[in-house]
Nucleic acid binder design. Structure first.
Lengths: 232, 232
DNA sequence: CGTTCAATTGATCAGCGTCAAACTAGGTGG
DNA sequence: CCACCTAGTTTGACGCTGATCAATTGAACG
């Protein structure tokens, strides 16, 4: 890999506090690869030989069963994936594919486990990262079991509005077909849900979102940090 | 806490490999408490001052939103809970309550974090435990998004049949109302789902389950280790 | 300008929740 | 020991949510 990539990796929480020589050891065997859109990076059920880090672009994690599949999450710059599978030396529970042209770092699982075993700051960071991911998935389950698809959509919009600066207008970062899958619904249903949010001051044209009555929308969405706050 | 409790804790994967003095340090400040059924051990949204370990009995983790609640999971002897919240010093995402009379160990979060910081074997075990929990929740999401409630029930039965020894007859370990919540459905719907499984050789009377045509049931359930295998 | 794929719309249907009532079982007190 | 109470379970009727299928519109790209 090129030296120009290392500062970005180093700045990630996962690698920020580790010893220099440990970091060196990790980076030495790392691969950096750029992929075109829609490339299958790894397949559900396969073993996990690398820990992946998204440097640029977007990667989606999908899970399949019985001829259908669902988007579990969409990852962007700075996210790692299949950390849990690497730790447990277990098969991946999800497939990963690029959505856009993406740059990805691949750290050999062996190296990760070895450095993990000797560098305590790294181990600590791994735990924090894993705990973070765990809590993310728990929130996801809560949304699925406690909310309707309309409520999930409403909260999704509020979450991204905040994440993108709080403006009344912002742009969706995934196409609608994928958003539907993330939220656990069909594209057709998402279309109708979007129309159903119009009385609550939501206007979506293409990927552009405008929220004109945030209070009305919030009274429908009833957001709570215990489901909707991405941090913590 | 009594000395008689320590061997059981020590035998758990989470504490098995750690240094003796680290273990001593953890156990020194620990509380062991017995609770009657239906006692709220902790409340969603509260801070997490202890890491909990179920020594005996059953504890359910529930999540609520908008005046309704759902059972996230039911824990038995040997399970830990709110490890992720302790690690991140973040509020619990779930409430916990005893279902039966239960004995629970409480390790002060401070101690856990301190020992975690100095004992590498423990840190390693924490990561493995967290990764295990993470994968469990991912499987849960896959079930919710990819399967109908009937399919989830069918797989639940097959999973427990295997877990309890593989006999054609076995007994449910939770009451049906809770099973319904675990599977993400209403008690009424579970009742009907049970009837709907009769053509597939499933007879459930009270908590007793009999599976007479396992192959038929499997052809409906289409179990896969990537969703249904509790280990790995 | 045509091809292609996403997004929308309508019609229909299945899955599942809600409500109400009947039934059952386990536990308590007379 | 039995009557009764309570809570869980089952059943039926009904309606809403969301999936499916099919057809149309729309938008991006070569």
């Amino acid at each position: 890999m090129r030296d120009s990539d290392t500062p970005m990796i180093r700045s990630l929480p996962l690698f920020h506090d580790m010893a220099d020589d440990s970091f060196e050891e990790l980076v030495r065997g790392a691969y950096v690869q750029s992929f075109p859109p829609m490339v299958e990076l790894l397949v559900e059920g396969d073993g996990s030989d690398f820990l992946y880090i998204v440097v640029d672009g977007t990667v989606e994690l999908v899970a399949g069963w019985n001829d259908s599949e669902t988007t579990m999450t969409v990852l962007r710059e700075g996210s790692t994936f299949i950390l849990a599978a690497v730790i447990r030396e277990a098969p991946n529970l999800m497939s990963a594919r690029t959505l856009e042209k993406s740059k990805v770092i691949m750290l050999p699982a062996e190296d990760v486990r070895r450095v993990f075993a000797k560098d305590h700051a790294f181990a600590r960071a791994v735990v924090r990262e894993l705990a973070f991911c765990y809590r993310g998935v728990i929130k996801c389950v809560k949304g699925l079991k406690l909310r309707t698809s309309l409520e999930r959509l409403a909260n999704y919009l509020l979450k991204w509005q905040k994440k993108l600066g709080g403006d009344t207008r912002f742009t969706l970062t995934v196409e609608k077909r994928r958003l539907a899958s993330i939220l656990g619904m069909t594209p057709e249903n998402l279309s109708r849900a979007i129309k159903a949010l119009r009385p609550y001051g939501v206007v979506i044209t293409g990927l552009n979102v405008e929220i004109t009555k945030p209070d009305d929308l919030k009274s429908l969405a009833k957001p709570t940090p215990l489901i909707d706050d991405p941090r913590s």
